[in-house]
Amino acid sequence: MKSREIKIRNGSIEEVVALSQQVPEFFQPYSEKIYHERLSCRPHLILIAEVDGELAGFKVGYQSATSGIFYSWMGGVLASYRRMGIATKLADTQESWAKNHGFQKVQFKTRNRLSKMIHFGLNRGFMIVDLIKKDQVQEHRIVMEKNL
Rank of each mutant, 00 (worst) to 15 (best):
Q21I: 04
Q28W: 04
I34Y: 03
I8N: 00
M74D: 12
Q63W: 04
I142H: 03
G53W: 03
L55V: 12
Y81S: 02
V129W: 08
A79P: 10
V60D: 11
E37W: 07
W73V: 11
R9K: 10
T110S: 04
Y35A: 02
K2I: 00
Y30D: 09
E50V: 09
E25S: 05
R111C: 08
S64K: 02
V106Q: 06
T88R: 10
L148A: 07
E50G: 09
S72F: 08
I6V: 15
F27P: 01
S20W: 01
V106P: 04
K109N: 14
L148C: 07
V143G: 03
F120A: 09
S40L: 07
K7R: 15
E95A: 12
A49L: 11
I34A: 05
K105D: 14
G121M: 00
S12V: 05
F108A: 03
I128Q: 15
Q63L: 10
T110M: 02
S72N: 13
I34N: 05
F58R: 06
K89Q: 15
F26N: 04
Q104V: 11
A56T: 09
D130I: 10
R83P: 03
E145V: 08
R113H: 09
Q21R: 06
W73R: 05
S64A: 13
V129Y: 07
S40M: 11
S3L: 00
K109D: 15
Y81C: 04
Q21F: 02
D130M: 01
F108G: 01
Q63V: 07
M144D: 01
R83F: 13
L45K: 13
V17L: 00
E14W: 06
V23S: 00
W73T: 14
A98F: 14
H140L: 02
R82P: 08
R42E: 09
K2M: 00
K146F: 08
A56P: 08
N147V: 08
L148V: 01
F108I: 02
K105R: 14
G102W: 07
A79C: 10
Y62S: 08
I128K: 14
